[in-house]
Computed example of a mutant assay.
Amino acid sequence: MEKPKDIEGFKIWYEKKFNSKIDQPKKNYYDQVTQALKQQISTSNFWTGFTDELKELSHEYLLTTQYEFMASAIQTPELYLKPFNSYIDKLFRKNVIDNKNWPECPEGGWYKVESSYNRIKDLVRTSFVVKYLDGVELLATKLERFGAQTGNNIVVSFEAREHGYYAAHLDVGFQLEIPKMSWETEAIYCSFEIQITTQLQEVLKKLTHQYYETRRLDLGTNEQNKKWQWDYKSEEFTANYLGHILHYLEGMILEVRDRRK
């Protein structure tokens, strides 16, 4: 079977491969599952208890540096659900674009619409925006320690990607109940994702988000795409290097700030 090159081709491939359509009933079921995940996470001891921890960290940071820790008022951020279309995009990437075993299944088996909720880590996600670069690691460490107290395993990764993306990602593990298609429930172990980024990187992300969403679904077969570092007229060149420049500037800002202390 020919390798899908876009999302529409993936839907056709999926139907032929598994004799199952990506249709409205599957979207309805997905919405039920993700709403159940969000409700349980939002009322968990981990999520409801962290606000006080965040206030304590912000107070300590202000006393130590004489600068505010957060980019806005201290509050627990909103939890967001991955839209169904984005979920299908992720399955396309996992099954096809990032699948080094193609035409065989990726490691761990095929990612199917109705049974991959425990494998996709950002169905429920949120983000914290700190003012300065040093706040990213401080907050990640605070969240990791608090997770240990509430029994939630947290995996932290500090992202520094070629295309200029810088942020900390935390996968917070939960044992949760989800509805089955038979209207019973089942327990699954899944994660929700917390991103921690700086104020400047958050502004850049909003400016370039749509561009990167398009690029992530590109199979990258065009030779020109592999040499964006030399195509100074391309959107990729501008967006990617702007991310690296901002990261460097943030480091310099901290250095100047610390010298003034």
Rank of each mutant, 00 (worst) to 15 (best):
Y87I: 07
K90H: 13
I97N: 10
K121L: 04
N101G: 04
I97R: 13
H169V: 06
Y87D: 11
Q149D: 12
D89Y: 04
N101Q: 11
N99D: 03
L138R: 14
S115P: 08
P103A: 07
T141V: 10
E114R: 10
N95R: 13
D122E: 02
F92C: 15
R161D: 13
P106D: 11
S115K: 13
S116L: 02
Y132V: 01
R119Q: 14
F146M: 02
G108A: 07
A160T: 08
A168V: 01
Y111P: 06
K112A: 04
V124T: 02
K90N: 13
R145K: 09
K100I: 15
S116R: 02
N152W: 04
I88S: 08
D134V: 03
W102N: 09
S115M: 09
G151M: 09
K100H: 12
N153C: 04
I97Q: 12
S127C: 04
R145L: 06
R119I: 07
L133S: 08
R119F: 10
P106S: 11
E107G: 10
C105P: 09
V156I: 07
F92K: 13
L138H: 05
P106A: 11
N99Q: 03
T150W: 03
Y117L: 03
E104H: 11
V113H: 06
F92E: 14
L91M: 15
S157K: 14
L139S: 00
G108N: 09
S127D: 03
N153E: 14
L133C: 03
G108L: 06
G151D: 08
K131G: 05
G108W: 05
A148Y: 02
W102C: 11
D98W: 14
R93I: 15
L143P: 01
Y87F: 15
E159F: 04
R161F: 09
I154K: 00
F128H: 00
G135Q: 02
A140H: 01
V113R: 03
D134P: 04
T126N: 00
N153K: 12
E114P: 04
V113W: 04
L133P: 03
G164Q: 10
R161T: 13
N99M: 05
I120Y: 07
D134E: 09
N152D: 09
P106E: 12
E114I: 14
W110N: 10
K121E: 12
R145P: 01
F158T: 05
A167Q: 12
P106L: 11
D98I: 05
T141S: 10
F128I: 00
R161P: 10
